[in-house]
Design a protein around this nucleic acid. Sequence first.
DNA 1: AAACATTGCTTGCGCATGCATATGGTGGTG
DNA 2: CACCACCATATGCATGCGCAAGCAATGTTT
Lengths: 141, 141
Amino acid sequence: MSVTPADRATPADRATPAGTADVVGAWREMQARHAAVCSALERELGDRHGLGISDFEVLDRLADSPAREWRAQDLAESVHLSQSALSRLVDRLARTGLVERCACDNDRRGIFVLLTEDGARKHAAAATTHRAVLARVLPAR
Amino acid sequence: MSVTPADRATPADRATPAGTADVVGAWREMQARHAAVCSALERELGDRHGLGISDFEVLDRLADSPAREWRAQDLAESVHLSQSALSRLVDRLARTGLVERCACDNDRRGIFVLLTEDGARKHAAAATTHRAVLARVLPAR
DNA sequence: AAACATTGCTTGCGCATGCATATGGTGGTG
DNA sequence: CACCACCATATGCATGCGCAAGCAATGTTT
């Protein structure tokens, strides 16, 4: 149930603005669904492929890209992680050979993160699980 | 150059069931919204009331309850936290006097977590911020 | 060109979380 | 009563995260 703009703008605003209950309900429902999907993904990606959710998300972004490379910065934003968290995540992925760090020629502060062949294979395998989990638990009520 | 969902779910894709592309898109959108709401809540509840998201969620459940008390177990499930995480969360809230642990008479393994007067006041204040943030960022975009 | 501000990434640190396990309480079965 | 499987919470430990600070490269101002 979505809240219409009219609901939100109702003037009968006291301690609890009109439409508030709906928003809270929507938020709780989103939290529940988010938690359900995360825990299912965490478990299945972890057990079957040794990947965490964030790991997969990064591989997924890289696999989507034509050149299979992203600027670290853009990657962080895309997967909703802080710069520092992404830096360490790339560390872990690089240590297991799934991605490589690559200096950026025109701006030597930046780095490109690029998918290795191993990474591409891992992603292809994990993507099947990922899609299956989403199809199973995301629409579930 | 971004790859559209349609690109990912080419009909020639036997391994991926139909509708898969849509689910991935929906999941990414949910992640984005969830992250946006969490970061806004984290910031505003933290700055204005010294509360984290989980802290508020617990207070909110307690305030909702007629008796202002919940079994620790049920609380954990309701706020989507592990039993251990909730135990420590209650520690922190109890240490700042917002809740109290209360032995359960008929089953002395269990505990009730109950809202103190301070906790109720804190919740009332924070709830305003919480609702406002939700109304602002949840329906956005 | 020298000094300063800004950007992009890394690192030190503290913290919240989950998993596995310990501790203590309960109920059922012999 | 003794035992045992089970349940509800607490705690040790490892991990991933964000914030703040650091560092090197780049851009800007004079």
